[in-house]
Structures are given as structure tokens and as C-alpha cells.
């Protein structure tokens, strides 16, 4: 089951209006806001632009092209897809500190309606606070990885189109929340901002469980996920090889993301201590 032409590899395997709307909408709003920020002399660098759009582009690539088909029929590509949805994509998007640009890019009417509504909406704010609570966020982050990898749950997610979508969206949204907490760029005085020490603890806490489950899959001597045998793999490969590569993808790059995040946080921490009088910018 291969596309007829090279271009067709970039076409959606399954067309999801939500994915198109989410990615195209965010990209348009961000680019608009980024240009507006530059026009008005606010800080908006090319690094942030490239970082945000690369992260968003990667998310689109794994959710809405031929990669989506491969991820449904090859375990290790599914793991790669989740690495992008849960780690790499949101990591790059939030590292770019996109809030100011996103705010500036919203059409005025939408901004005047949306932002006050968000500020007033207590249940939503409570939910956000709960999910970003330092004792909850790392558990949710690791818990979701473990949950979708429970063999029975994984089987259902790979067979049911609805559950498959639910799985991918839950990974993406949790990834965005988690890296938002980690790369929060509000000044130290901002209410509810977690200190750098706490954030470093959180990014390091999520490493051992990911190593554990990655190693469990990479070193297993029997196939744990039968759904790929049942439905057929994208190309001939032994089930154990597929699983071993998938385990390594879960084990190594995801742990490295935490290490990189720690280095970035340490650098920001030192920078903040050296120049406490210069806030890094505020988010309303």
C-alpha cells in the first residue's frame, strides 16, 4: 500500500480536519504575530520562528502524511511518531516561547473575546493548575506513555480509528502542557511559576521510567504487541527486530531530551541570577 507518486507521500493518509485546522491555524497565527512583534520592536528572533515552525511541522508530518500509515503498521515508527508528538515537537514549540507572538497574531476580535473568557473560566483554570501541579505533571507525562503501551490498550488503539486519534491527541496535548511547564519564561516574580530547581527535578524524574519501559521492550525475548502481526506490518521485518528498535527509540532519544532540557534550564537559571533586574518578558 504505497502512494502512486513521490508527492503523494506528503498527502494525508487519513484526512483529519482537526489536525489540519490545528496545525495550519497555529502556524498562521504565529507567523502573523511574529511579524507584528518585529514591526512594533518587540523581541521576535529568527531562532524562535524556525524552532516553533519546525516543531509544529514535525507534528503535522507524523500525524497527517504517509508517516501516519507507517506508524499504524510498524511498531518502531509508532514509537518515533510518539517521540515527536510527546517530546520533540512540543519541546521545540515551547522552547521558542511563542505566547507573545501567538497573542499578537490573533485577530483583534478573537483576542478580545478569547483572552477575557480564558481569564474568567474557573473550571478551565483549575484543570490547568491541576495538570501542571508539580506532583501531577511528571506522573501524567510518564503515565500516558505506560498507559498506551499496555498490550490490551495498545491493541484497541491500533484497531479502532477513534482510539488511535484519542491516543495521538492525548500525547500531543500532554507534551505541550509538560514542556510549557518546563520552559515557562515568565519572570521569577510571576504567580504560580515553578522555580528552576523544581523544573530540573521534574525533567529528571521522568527519565528512569522511560528508560525502564524502553529497555523492557528492547530486551524482551517475545513479541509484546500482537496487533502488528494481526494487521500486517508495512514491510517485512521480524516482530522482535521491530520491537527492539521501538524500545530503543523509547529509551534513548526521550531520555536525551530531558538532558538537553536540563542544560537549557541550568543556563537560564544562571542567567537569571546574574541579571535579576532584567526580566525575560511577561505573559499575561
Amino acid at each position: 500500500m504505497q502512494p502512486a507518486s513521490a508527492w503523494a507521500y506528503l498527502l494525508p493518509w487519513d484526512f483529519y480536519p482537526t489536525v489540519l485546522l490545528f496545525c495550519a491555524g497555529l502556524a498562521l497565527i504565529y507567523i502573523r504575530g511574529w511579524r507584528r512583534c518585529r514591526e512594533t520592536g518587540q523581541p521576535a528572533g529568527y531562532a524562535a520562528l524556525v524552532g516553533f515552525l519546525t516543531g509544529l511541522g514535525l507534528v503535522y508530518l507524523v500525524m497527517h502524511t504517509y508517516v501516519d500509515y507507517l506508524a499504524q503498521h510498524m511498531f518502531w515508527i509508532h514509537r518515533l511518531q510518539h517521540l515527536v508528538l510527546h517530546h520533540l515537537g512540543p519541546f521545540l514549540m515551547l522552547l521558542a516561547d511563542p505566547w507573545k507572538a501567538l497573542r499578537a497574531g490573533l485577530p483583534v476580535r478573537a483576542r478580545d473575546l478569547l483572552l477575557p473568557w480564558l481569564a474568567r473560566n474557573r473550571p478551565l483554570r483549575l484543570l490547568y493548575r491541576l495538570l501542571q501541579y508539580p506532583l501531577v505533571a511528571p506522573r501524567l507525562f510518564v503515565g500516558l506513555i505506560y498507559f498506551w503501551l499496555l498490550p490490551e490498550v495498545h491493541f484497541g488503539a491500533m484497531l479502532s480509528a477513534t482510539r488511535y486519534q484519542l491516543m495521538n491527541w492525548s500525547m500531543l496535548l500532554d507534551g505541550l502542557l509538560f514542556w510549557w511547564l518546563i520552559f515557562d519564561s515568565r519572570p521569577a516574580s510571576a504567580v504560580g511559576r515553578l522555580g528552576y530547581g523544581g523544573r530540573i527535578v521534574i525533567v529528571s524524574l521522568v527519565v528512569p521510567p522511560q528508560i525502564l519501559i524502553g529497555a523492557h521492550m528492547a530486551l524482551a525475548t517475545e513479541s509484546l504487541y500482537s496487533v502488528y502481526n494481526v494487521c500486517g506490518r508495512a514491510w517485512p521485518i521480524s516482530p522482535l527486530t521491530d520491537q527492539q528498535i521501538g524500545g530503543l527509540v523509547t529509551w534513548i532519544p526521550s531520555s536525551m531530551m530531558s538532558v538537553i532540557a536540563m542544560l537549557i534550564l541550568l543556563r537560564r537559571w544562571m542567567h537569571e541570577r546574574e541579571s535579576p533586574a532584567l526580566p525575560r518578558g511577561t505573559v499575561a
Binding site: R139, G143, Y146, F147
Partner: peptide
């Protein structure tokens, strides 16, 4: 404690 979230979702 890691099991709490997965179990709730299950």
C-alpha cells in the same frame, strides 16, 4: 504511584 494515572484511565 506511577500506576495511579494509567489505572484511572484504564
Amino acid at each position: 504511584k506511577r500506576l495511579v494515572w494509567p489505572l484511572l484511565l484504564v
